[in-house]
Amino acid sequence: MVSLFDPALFWRYRHQLAAGAATTLALGACAVAASLVFGLCGWALKTSRHRPLAWLGNTYVEALRNTPDLLYIYGLYFGLTQVGVRFSAFTSAVLALGIQGGAYVAEIVRGAFTAVTRDQRLAARALGLRPWHSLVHVELPQMLRVAFPALGNQVISTLLGTALASVIAVPELTYQSQIVGDATYQYFSIFAVDAVIYLVLVQILTRLFHFVEHVWFGKWRGTV
């Protein structure tokens, strides 16, 4: 009979857990990248001057924000076989989390865009900057500052969302923990360890974002 609480479990299964954490990070990074792509597309649609496109963008954002992400993981993994499309578990999870996260990113970008004042766009135009240059050199850097904290939170919630990929057997951290739990029957210890690893990852990311925010935007005090 093993003891009920066994922190040494962490050491014994360190390789599995490390591999799981690495997969979690890779999955999280891919999902964040996908959510940025979906988010920018969603925002572009939402703000389109063509009514049907704007409707499409709004529907995307509202539909995805009001339904659970697990639905999309199941839907993409099992469901699309009917249409003849088959994704790997990893790809399904990336797409599901990316599509869902994109809806939130679209809202964040919209907020940031409205935060850059009309005055800034006027000043850029008065200097003869074309819309593209104005976007790249004047608007985007300021949008990034406004959106940065919210995007940081979004990255973290996407990272936490990757745990759901365990249901379709993506070998990420939670899946590995389950395997260890099933083998040792030490669910209490292993999920405690699992939780601590997530906690550490989230704390590292949070600190990192604060640091980057300070370095990049610290000097821009006060908008003009």
Partner: peptide, 19 residues
């Protein structure tokens, strides 16, 4: 806020009964 809901659920469902 730093741990996935699924892990919290596993902890409650599988972990706590053992302890």
């Amino acid at each position: 806020r730093s741990v996935p809901l699924l892990v919290q659920l596993f902890f409650v469902y599988y972990g706590l009964p053992l302890m």
